[in-house]
Design a protein around this nucleic acid. Structure first.
Lengths: 159, 159
DNA sequence: GTTGAAAATAGCACGAA
DNA sequence: TTCGTGCTATTTTCAAC
């Protein structure tokens, strides 16, 4: 009775997610601490199968981890900003190291264009922001845009 | 094995985190699915107390939620980019709505400066990226920087 | 994929510092 | 208040199918 499944391989490559996987990811994205049993109930299958599916998604590298969404304001970090960083000639690696070592930079991507780095900065106050940027000013030119609000909260792309 | 706790209220305001809370947040940030018992073992306290602390961090709004870290490449989204978006005169709200309705924009902040929006875009291919940007071109000017890599993976600010 | 039993865990009431 | 203990309900895991 092997019915050849339709090769609806919509993914451009890799780990083909079926619709169940998509629903699992969506559910876990909204609450990563859902119990496997509850998740199984939601999707409509048994707990052991659910555990196995989730484990597979982890092993396939689709799920990289389970993380926290922390409100940095609630712990005293009042200011968030996006900072474009252009190291002076020959200082690319030094500047990258400085960014990595400054924990107020909570995220940093390497990007194409005039400014090699785009970093997310979280600080307790404007004064502190100035300190952080000042520390870079000897080695890089920075452009800072303060975050006024959020239009789209982090979410998954269409599955 | 109890250490005398000093009221070192380091937070600039709000929800004072003690050192235990900081360790809890750090542990959950690296694995948000840690069981309360295991977490309790790590930190050195009983499971019920741990549950209560975590619940308090949630109620205080410090922990906003538990989320997934998904590798979008592993599900076929090969390209990531940061897009600065400047709506044409009078089109601010329209453009914001367009961004929100386009699921490939997985995050968007409202920022100060010439470009009101800075969005993270995740697409399956360059061609698809062009489609998305083209759809905005009638109402906004965009500047796109493709992400080549990561210097700092999302992390918590110093606690 | 399922079921069912054993081990681990979570949630609750209650008492101690 | 915050934490610990002991109890019960739930969940996880492992085996076998």
């Amino acid at each position: 009775m092997s019915k050849p499944k339709a090769p609806h391989n919509l993914q451009s490559r890799n780990s083909t997610l079926d619709e169940t996987d998509a629903r699992i990811l969506a559910a876990l994205d909204s609450d990563a601490r859902l119990s496997m049993s509850e998740l199984a109930r939601l999707i409509g299958m048994s707990a052991p199968s659910m555990s196995e599916r989730v484990r597979r998604l982890e092993n396939a590298g689709v799920i990289r981890g389970f993380t926290l969404d922390v409100d940095t304001r609630a712990i005293g970090y009042q200011i968030r900003a996006m900072v474009r960083i252009r190291p002076l000639l020959g200082k690319l690696h030094l500047v990258e190291k400085l960014i990595q070592e400054r924990p107020e930079f909570v995220e940093c991507d390497k990007i194409t264009g005039d400014d090699p780095f785009l970093a997310r900065l979280v600080v307790r106050s404007i004064e502190r922001m100035d300190d952080v940027l000042e520390a870079l000013s000897e080695h890089a030119v920075t452009s800072t845009a303060v975050i006024k609000g959020t239009s789209v909260k982090r979410r998954l792309p269409p599955l």
